[in-house]
Design a protein around this nucleic acid. Structure first.
Length: 948
RNA sequence: GCAGGGGUGGCAGAGCCUGGCCAAAUGCGACGGGCUUAGGACCCGCUUCCUUUAGUGGAUGCAAGAGUUCAAAUCUCUUCCCCUGCACCA
């Protein structure tokens, strides 16, 4: 058995028969689309999670009689390919090593300094990988997001967004490299760090007797009431400068003046040493208090503005700095910390203990005598900030009782309203370095274009769309709700990258997640317009095709495009786009998938809105996240070569819940391989088996089979593929083993069973399924066969329970036999004693209302006894039995098996029992048994009497 | 910090929505046995503790704690811990 041979043989047959190429037809349509791959790396096994899951759905729906279209395109817009080429031009060793892992030749790598080459290379490479993975894609429709025809489509989309006033302009901070003079994203930094930008408030303190301000940055404006002084670093340079042309200048650190220049217009006036600031006093804008300026040991020039307002009651660093200053003998007045908020309960400190000194109390949690090193102060700060933000209540008059965050926002609003504060941006994870080596700064772009997902009407439109979408798995629905609420402005135009020019500013490129929100609709026409020159694709064409607006005849005469072709485009979109399923990894919920919903709601009529979205987890490699640094990435083609396509598909796609990560491990993969081989082996021998009348075990197998058809159908509809593979694959093999162990299997039953599970296995493991399907004598493609239908009449709880009973009798007998052997004796034969009928009645009476009252009443009267078929002398023993039964009252269930049923089953299974146990077995009813253990018999739990 | 998802036996991982047939599927691993020259493969058994040399008895138990209930892995609340995403980046 050679997976490679099987895989390529069936892939070729599918391709030759063009069974995955779909066109407008009379059957119900089903369009499956997946987040198209970005063309800067080959596929690894992780990619198959999403593509494979979509493929399973496509294959399943095909078997359910839908006309299924599963198209694929490629994403090449944006900056990564450019960054990729640049890295190779700079001979980046890390990247080269990564490419070598995928067996890319030196010769090819040498050509990868050209972005176009990179894109073309990976388009081919990825398409090849998808072929090898057996994805049922209609390749006639592929396109690349840099194709000029696609650009026309995107321009049309943005025209509509603009006409609806969803595009707005504003200020926006970005990571910026001062050296290269361009925006810096994750792809452009050393070690791929995302520059983490955050806004902080800068509050100005008027310098007493001078037309200037000290500018302090803070995360906690609500503590402004507790300011006792200002800290600067006396050993660094400060710059007096004007900001944005205001006439009163500010003191900030020299470094800050430079980095702020990317956010504001900064005019430096003069530099002075920090020590000169120490003689000044600042006025607190919130209460007019005048506070002194002190040197602070922790103040850094490159953090914020290099000027810090000191709140010793609520900031451990401030408290410690004042304490050290006093202890060093620095000439200073007595500074009294002032508390602005308190924590009533639930915090780490005792709220009564340090009325005006919470910071000291926090320090005390980490260090003896409140004399802590910087790292401990850091910890104390974090804890205090966290607890005060959560549990703190303001104690300042107008703010009394307010939470920390709420008060902070109010103070911020007041200050900003009065012009006493403004926001500046800083890099929270500073320093971040650009690949060129320079530290990244934050630049504020003034004329940034955004898509305004915060627009109220649009949002409610999107909410309406979301309502109509089936989200799989259901539990991720809440994430969509949250994402929809949260999404607001999204910067849409970029200064660099591949892609479509932004219509309202042709110097900019449309950001690459924003140009792929409705591309799924492009598949419906991509094959039809492929050869048309892009300039003919005027907005009116798309208006007609997608919106049914305008007149195809006039579009035809305006562009020279064949009238019929235009009509076909419209028909194709209208046909395919009514029933769609969208697939991606869960991490895209908060951007791509939400934008997908918004844009569909904005552009298309209701009947073309999304119908289903499925999000899946990732793939781990031997329990670890796959990463370049761990070197544990398994290239897809390598994996397929080594293990076989379906073994990989089975493990990657179907070994975990849809939303959970699946683990690719050697051991698990081997287990799948072994089971496939078991099936192949069994099918190879299928003609050896006779077929006669159906026995109990045959009915059992049919019952199990039909039950799993029903459950697997339900599960695959929800893409619960782990459940499908467990019941259809793993459990089936256990059932087959059990069935075969019973001896003389029925060939027809086996064939029925195997055919059916193969049909259900086909979406997940299509190559193996085709091979086995044909091994069973079929001529058709299993890929095009009908999904099986459960026959409810074949499902029998009774038959299954009876088989379970046989198993437990064997287990129990073995257990008893073990005890006998322990005493040195050897079991010679066993009698199995079937409980009397009255015990079944008793069971059912008790089980009915979970009470022994009724049955006891019956046992207490002669007629009642008689009704149960008992004699008066049985009374005592039967009461004892019932009392015993009552102990497990809550577990009793109704039984529909009579004593005769049970007896018949056991008598008919004597041979099997004998074979399993290894000694003679006889069966007898309780009433006819002379065994002293006979009275132990209970329904479905016969008494066992072993002679030794 | 905010948002979303989680925490189950040596490990992986079902079960949780719809409470009771749950000492908890299945797989892997470990252990004992069979088969074998041996290893692998395969087959059988076993894998919380106690009790029982004739069994299906008892205790503890599903992150921790509290609660609801006749009954909780499952429902509610609190706490702790882990994973993912957080914007111009695909």
């Amino acid at each position: 058995m050679d997976y490679k041979e099987i895989d390529s043989r069936w892939q070729k047959k599918w391709a030759d028969a063009r069974i995955f190429e779909s066109d407008v037809g009379s059957k119900d349509p089903y369009l499956v689309t997946v987040a198209f791959p970005y063309v800067n790396a080959p596929l690894h096994i992780g990619h198959i999670r999403t593509y494979g899951t979509a493929d399973v759905l496509a294959r399943y729906k095909r078997m359910r009689g839908y006309n299924v279209l599963f198209p694929m395109g490629f994403h090449a817009t944006g900056t990564p390919i450019l960054a990729f080429a640049k890295r190779l031009r700079n001979n980046d060793k890390e990247l080269v090593a990564e490419l070598k892992l995928f067996h890319i030749s030196d010769q090819t790598i040498a050509q990868m300094t050209d972005p176009l080459f990179i894109a073309n290379y990976f388009v081919k490479d990825i398409e090849y990988g998808m072929h090898r993975a057996g994805l049922s894609i209609d390749w006639r429709r592929k396109f690349v997001s840099t194709d000029p025809q696609f650009s026309k489509f995107i321009e049309w989309q943005f025209g509509i967004l603009n006409s609806k006033e969803y595009l707005v302009k504003g200020r926006h901070p970005v990571g910026w490299c001062p050296n290269e003079n361009n925006a810096v994203g994750m792809h452009d930094t050393k070690h791929d760090v995302e520059p983490d930008i955050e806004g902080v408030l800068s509050i100005r303190f008027k310098v007493e007797g001078e037309d200037a301000y000290l500018l302090c940055t803070t995360y906690r404006p609500e503590t402004l009431f507790g300011v006792t002084n200002i800290f600067v670093n006396k050993d660094i340079k400060y710059t007096l400068c004007r900001i944005n042309g205001g006439h009163e200048p500010y003191y900030v650190s020299k470094e800050a003046s430079k980095s702020l220049a990317f956010q504001f217009k900064i005019e430096p006036i003069s530099d002075i040493p920090g020590s000169e600031l120490l003689s000044k006093r600042g006025v607190n804008p919130i209460n007019g208090e005048s506070v002194p300026v002190f040197p602070g040991f922790f103040v850094k020039g490159d953090v914020g503005t290099g000027v810090v307002m000191s709140v010793p009651a609520h900031a451990p660093f401030d408290y410690a700095a004042l304490k050290r200053l006093r202890e060093s003998g620095y000439p200073m007045p007595d500074i009294k910390p002032r508390r602005v908020m308190e924590i009533k309960a639930g915090g780490s400190i005792n709220p009564e203990g340090y009325v005006d000194l919470p910071a000291m109390a926090y320090i005390g949690l980490f260090a003896k005598g409140s004399d802590a090193g910087d790292d401990l102060l850091e910890k104390a700060t974090k804890l205090q900030y966290r607890e005060e933000a959560h549990l703190g209540k303001m104690v300042i008059h107008e703010y009394e009782g307010m939470g920390g965050d709420e008060a902070g926002n109010k103070v911020k609003g007041e200050l900003m309203g009065a012009g006493n504060a403004f926001e500046i941006y800083i890099l929270a994870n500073s320093p971040v370095y650009c690949r060129c080596g320079y530290p990244v700064a934050v630049k504020v772009v003034d004329d940034q274009w955004f898509i305004n997902y915060g627009n109220k009407e649009w949002k409610s439109l999107a909410a309406a769309a979301l309502k109509g979408i089936t989200i799989l798995p259901e539990k991720s629905k809440r994430a969509f709700d949250a994402a929809l609420d949260w999404i607001g402005l999204r910067a849409v135009a970029r200064s660099q990258g591949l892609g479509t020019r932004f219509p309202l500013d042709k110097g900019k490129i449309i950001e690459s997640l924003s140009d792929s929100t409705i591309y799924m609709s492009f598949y419906t026409i991509s094959n039809l317009i492929r050869d048309l020159p892009a300039e003919k694709l005027i907005p009116e064409l798309f208006d007609y095709v997608y919106l049914n607006k305008g007149d195809p005849q006039s579009v035809s005469s305006a562009t020279g495009i064949d009238f019929q072709l235009i009509k076909r485009c419209r028909e194709s979109f209208d046909y395919w786009y009514r029933n769609t399923s969208r697939h991606s990894a869960g991490e895209l919920i908060f951007n791509h998938l939400t934008m997908y919903i918004f844009n569909h709601a904005a552009i298309f009529a209701k009947e073309y809105w999304p119908r289903q979205i499925a999000v899946n987890g990732m793939v781990l490699s031997e329990g670890e996240k796959m990463s370049k640094s761990l070197g544990n990435i398994v290239p897809l083609v390598d994996g397929i070569e080594k293990y076989g396509t379906d073994v990989i598909r089975m493990q990657v796609i179907a070994s975990a819940d849809l939303f959970s990560d699946s683990d690719f491990s050697e051991v698990a993969v081997r287990g799948i391989d072994e089971r496939f081989r078991y099936l192949f082996d069994l099918v190879g021998r299928i003609d050896e088996f006779d077929s006669g009348e159906l026995r109990h075990i045959d009915y059992w197998l049919y019952s199990k089979l039909n039950r799993k058809v029903a459950s697997a159908t339900e599960q695959i509809e929800k893409l619960e593929l782990r459940g499908v593979s467990t019941s259809v694959f793993y459990d089936s093999i256990l059932e087959l083993r059990k069935y075969l162990a019973r001896g003389s299997p029925n060939g027809i039953v086996l064939k029925d069973y195997l055919s059916c599970i193969i049909l259900m296995l086909a979406p997940i493991a299509p190559h193996v399924a085709e091979e086995i399907w044909h091994g069973l004598g079929n001529e058709s493609f299993v890929s095009l066969e009908k999904w099986p239908q459960a026959d409810g009449s074949m499902i029998s709880d009774k038959v299954e329970a009876e088989e379970d009973m046989l198993d437990s009798i064997i287990a129990d007998t073995n257990q008893v036999a073990a005890l006998i052997r322990k005493s040195g004796k050897e079991p010679r034969s066993v009698r199995i004693i079937v409980a009397d009928e009255w015990k079944r009645s008793a069971n059912n009476i008790v089980a009915k209302d979970h009470s022994i009252k009724q049955i006891m009443e019956r046992l207490n009267s002669a007629e009642g006894m008689q009704g149960l078929g008992l004699k008066p002398e049985d009374r005592e023993r039967s009461m004892k039995y019932v009392q015993n039964m009552a102990k497990k009252m809550n577990q009793l269930r109704q039984l529909d098996q009579s004593q005769d049923d049970e007896y018949g089953l056991l008598a008919g299974s004597v041979d099997y029992l004998k074979k399993s146990l290894g000694y003679p077995v006889t069966v007898e009813p309780e009433s006819k048994s002379d065994s002293k253990r006979a009275h132990n018999a209970a329904p479905q739990r016969p008494s066992i009497d072993i002679s030794s």
